Amino acid sequence: MGDSLLADRRALVTGATGFTGSHLAHALRAKGYHVRALVRDPDGANAKRLAEGGIELIQGDIGDAEAIDQAVARMTHVFHIAAVYRTANHSDAYYERINRDAVGYVLEAANRHGVERIVHCSTCGVHGDVAEIPANEETAFNPGDVYQRSKLAGEMLAQEAARAGAPVSIVRPTGIYGPGDDRFLKLFRTVENGTFRVFGKGDIAYHLTYIDDMVDGLILAGEHPAAIGEVFLIGDDSYTTLDGLVAEVARAVGVKPPSLHLPVVPLMLAATACEFACRPFGIDPPLHRRRVAFFTKARAFSVDKAKDRLGFQPKVPLADGIARTAEWYRQEGWLKGSGKTAA
């Protein structure tokens, strides 16, 4: 599809060198948008791939208000995807600067330059450990760590701007996965080599979103008239359990799923000790409490609002998405198995 169809639509994507942002930038370009990406290092491999796809690069840091202002200039759409995710060696102030303050810079610049549509990417994590499932957009906030708290603070700025009349839409994704992302690689590898262990009962709810569906949801939030001023959870049609997720991964890598379940309390104690031991040295600990949350925190959400108001329809079921992800890992040389299902 050429530029002629949407030649008047110019979209800035922040976080475009990351997993979700890169997929979104290429999808918008394929739709005919002129796409601009704010990147720290134009010579980096991810930035070069964007440029090869016809995406304009502008150098700058998401924590720099002046750089954001320059990037937003002459844009009709802004998709704010950039964030600092869960790593244990960043200070709380760093999370706040990137996940909260930068949102304010984006909103101010968008207002100053008359941007037509703004999509702010938040997280389902603002709801924390969900007590009643499936949760929805009205479920109480319950952030459980500095990442979730800082993302909630950023979302509050976006909600405030929307109440003041800014053309803002807010998306809260469930866990995003798919080819191009390595966050779930450790899970796939340890399931394949037989070293993965389930801590706890394995019956906690787990909700994912395949990357293509996530991109569809973000674009709908930036184009559909009914999205303005609204918040939408975006995810798969249905959720699973941790045991269900592990079983799908095992099927995709051709092994039997683990049957042993270990108590989670000793793991949490070890994570706490590891975190405190590493922090004075600025080391990212191999085990920390946020990783233990993988086994303990329920994540299950309704996406009915996005389906009803935006026409959002997830297209890639979990089994297909996990299989595609495993195949990509295999092509990258990160998995050893053939992918044939174990007998």
Results as ranks from 00 to 15, higher is better:
A93R: 01
R9F: 03
L220A: 09
L260H: 06
D64L: 06
I58R: 07
G194H: 03
A319H: 15
V231A: 08
S238K: 14
R183P: 05
H224A: 13
G44V: 07
S22V: 02
D304N: 05
G53W: 05
L260N: 05
M156Y: 04
I219P: 02
P286H: 14
S122W: 06
F281E: 02
E132I: 15
T20A: 08
D304Q: 10
M1R: 13
V171T: 09
A67H: 12
F301W: 15
D284H: 07
I234R: 10
S150H: 05
V316L: 05
F301L: 07
E96I: 09
T123M: 04
R117P: 15
R251N: 07
D243I: 03
L24T: 09
Q313P: 02
T17M: 03
R289T: 08
V231W: 00
P173D: 11
R112C: 07
A71D: 15
T272L: 08
R74Q: 10
E137K: 14
E332D: 12
L24R: 01
N111W: 01
T341Y: 08
G2Y: 10
V215P: 13
I81H: 01
R97E: 12
A30I: 15
K48R: 15
P173Q: 09
V146A: 04
I219N: 02
G244R: 09
